[in-house]
Design a protein around this nucleic acid. Structure first.
Length: 477
RNA sequence: GGCCCCAUCGUCUAGUGGUUAGGACAUCGGCCUCUCACGCCGAGUACAGCAGUUCAAAUCUGCUUGGGGUCACCA
């Protein structure tokens, strides 16, 4: 156990992006590694863009990935509520505290006035971007008008911190401006809401995306003005598209949940995401437990990583192969149902069937596709395969093969192979001479697992029936 | 443009002053083989550039170039 408290604070404006999922993962890994607490908080103050469906998508994604939270929505905790819109009184109280201490002030400038000032500033072709001139910072009258609360930011000196992944970062304060803490409707802006929440939730390590480093100085200023210690900070490089652009749906499946549909394993997704931006020597494949065991901020990279679909698929493949047949069957079952196959969960042939395609499949979608013929009667015939191999020239051999294997006992790979091999030798034939025709008759396709294992899983009855059916099709071709 | 961050094979990276610069994915050969895969063997490919520090630099310093982030009453 440790007193480490980390959090993941997504904004529910859509699906859970894999970049966000990685941020959540790193926080979660650290909490699990050191025995700390992982808190989930929903930053829903942007009422215009937030939706209930998005909130649900976050929960579903986190659950699918297996990133369980110790405090947060649905679980509660001593520092709730965990939705920012339910914590408005807290922000108000902290804003009042800052006004009282002189660190902040009420600003009555309207958006229109500011807009005009901004336009005027830009018209001068100035060197730096527009900054609030501090008009209300010096005003004494407090009219009964709508106002925002602004932070009185320093204009000299520097604000910095020792970033856990990037090292020392110092930013001159002259780049600061009197930024807004609370909008005129009482809702906090990101920097203020995040700090008040992190403070009141006792978060002592904040790990987030690279894009937040510019938010850090103002946040540190707020911590100091409030009189609270600044938490440890870690900024993780972002995930970019292969071409270096910001990663979006145009480049890849960016929603964490999409990988569930694509037939990926949550552990594989976590493995890939972790390795993108973090490393542990030359190791590429990690189980969830290994990730927890080896994770650390010191081995997080400093460079933005590019999404690589091929590498991702490779990692998924490795995880899929590590599954035992029964577990693989369990995972693949929903995907069989998705393609209209009715297979009982306790169907004994299912595990054996998936076992024969394990080395050939990358995802559960692949498994379902490759195992389809075992459970569909008749199997779906690939037109080209049928046209090429179920021809009159092969008809007699298919019938002979059917007759040969009929009655074989035990009806298993080894016995079948021995029997067929002997027959082939006696006939002066090679396995090549019958393989493809038999394969198409048995599976409907030109590619499949080995013939003998297919026969074993199919069982005597289906094997013989399909070979005879193949014989008929070949004759009629 | 200002501020900040970053820079090793195509990609993810190992590397923390002295290495034949390692691994993985991808690519290209070959082997295996009843098909497709798997597996095995092998190959090519990288320290952005320029100065400097040092006996010695991918590792330290500076500059240049390149890339990224951010400049809201969004998060």
């Amino acid at each position: 156990m440790s007193d480490v408290r980390v959090r993941f604070a997504p904004s529910p404006t859509g699906y859970l992006h894999i970049g966000g999922a990685r941020t959540a993962l790193f926080n979660w890994l650290w909490a699990r590694k050191v025995g700390g607490k992982f808190i989930l908080r929903i930053e829903d103050t942007d009422r215009g863009r937030n939706t209930a469906e998005s909130v649900q998508a976050i929960f579903d994604s986190m659950k699918w990935l297996g990133l369980d939270w110790d405090e947060g929505p649905g679980i509660g905790g001593p520092n709730g509520p965990y939705f920012q819109t339910e914590r408005l009184a807290l922000y108000h109280a902290h804003a009042e505290q800052l006004i009282a201490s002189g660190h902040a002030y009420r600003c009555f400038c309207t958006k229109e006035e500011l807009g005009a000032a901004r336009a005027a500033h830009e018209a001068t072709g100035a060197k730096h971007s527009f900054r609030y001139p501090g008009t209300c910072s010096r005003r004494t009258a407090q009219p009964d008008l709508p106002y925002v609360v602004r932070f009185r930011a320093p204009t000299s000196g520097t604000t910095g911190w020792d970033d856990l992944v990037k090292g020392r970062i110092d930013v001159p304060n002259d780049a600061q401006q009197d930024f807004i803490l609370l909008r005129n409707d009482g809702v906090p802006l990101y920097n203020f809401g995040a700090v008040v929440d992190d403070v009141t939730m006792n978060i002592n390590l904040v790990a987030r995306g690279d894009d937040h480093v510019v938010n850090t100085p103002p946040q540190i200023l707020i911590y100091e003005a409030l009189g609270y210690p600044v938490p440890s900070l870690a900024h993780l490089p972002m995930i970019l598209a292969p071409n270096g652009e910001k990663l979006s749906k145009r480049h890849a499946a960016v929603s964490a949940l999409e990988y569930a549909e694509l037939g990926y394993l949550p552990d594989a997704v976590l493995n890939y995401l972790a390795r993108l931006g973090w490393s542990h020597g030359d190791q590429e494949i990690f189980s969830r437990a290994e990730l927890i065991e080896h994770f650390g901020w010191d081995h997080c990279g400093h460079t933005a990583g590019k999404y690589d679909a091929k590498k991702f698929l490779y990692v998924q493949t490795e995880h899929l192969r590590a599954l035992d047949d029964a577990t693989l069957a369990e995972h693949a079952l929903p995907f069989l149902e998705k393609r209209g196959l009715v297979v009982a969960a306790d169907e004994p042939r299912l595990a054996a069937a998936v076992g024969t395609v394990k080395a050939r499949a990358a995802t559960f979608v692949d498994v379902a596709d490759m195992v389809d013929f075992y459970f569909r009667e008749p199997p779906v015939f690939d037109p080209k395969a049928k046209e090429k191999f179920l021809v009159p020239a092969n008809a007699a051999r298919l019938e002979a093969l059917a007759t040969l294997v009929e009655g074989t006992a035990p009806f298993d790979h080894a016995t079948l192979e021995a029997k067929i091999t002997a027959w082939l030798a006696a006939e002066g034939l090679q396995i090549k001479d019958i393989a493809q025709a038999a394969r198409v008759a048995l599976t409907g396709r030109a590619q499949s697992p080995g013939l003998f294992e297919v026969m074993q899983v199919l069982g005597e009855e289906r094997t013989v029936a399909r070979l005879r059916r193949g014989h008929e099709l070949a004759q009629g071709a």
